[in-house]
Amino acid sequence: MQHLTALLPRVTLKQALIVGGATTPLLAGGAGVLAILLYLMAAGGTATPAPEQPIAFDHSVHAGDAAIPCEFCHRGVGSQAAATVPSVEQCMFCHSVVKTDSPQIQLLQAHWDTNTPVNWARVHRVPDHVRFVHAPHIQAGVACETCHGDVASMEEVKQVRSLAMGDCQGCHRENSASLDCATCHK
């Protein structure tokens, strides 16, 4: 236990405890294990693999080649908490005529025809005890790619930042945004 924490100088016991509470009832013996996880999350950060999506939607085509603005599809981003994924109907605005012969678009067409929703795999997710609201970040002039990376060049979207507490805090600190716990924790 002691030698484990000694290996991880950047993570103090206090920081480990911070993450423990709500969702993981913390036992004293578990602190070290958690500390390792934390350390990996904080240090490793970048390499979350892209999840497999039900339809191979290519952001590099839409946001990159076609240069469609993010908020054209993610319509809630400027006004509310969730950026929101577009409805099948919205996809079909274009794809009832664009590239209808593509097998992936036919998958989409099938959802439209059978009136079934698409279950996209979630790429970015914050824990349940965190309240994240997109709108104030957009209003503060934070660019989408600051947190989401260069989506315009990604065929498959993956998480590029850790989005762990320290990550958020660093940015908040640099920009003199609120560091009050209650701003993000609910």
Binding site: Q80, A82, V85, S87, V118, W120, A121
Partner: peptide
């Protein structure tokens, strides 16, 4: 369920996830 985001087939007017 939290690992998924469902898209509406038809976007109900004014109704957005989490709204």
């Amino acid at each position: 369920r939290e690992s998924q985001v469902q898209s509406f087939v038809l976007q109900p007017e004014l109704s957005l996830p989490g709204q």
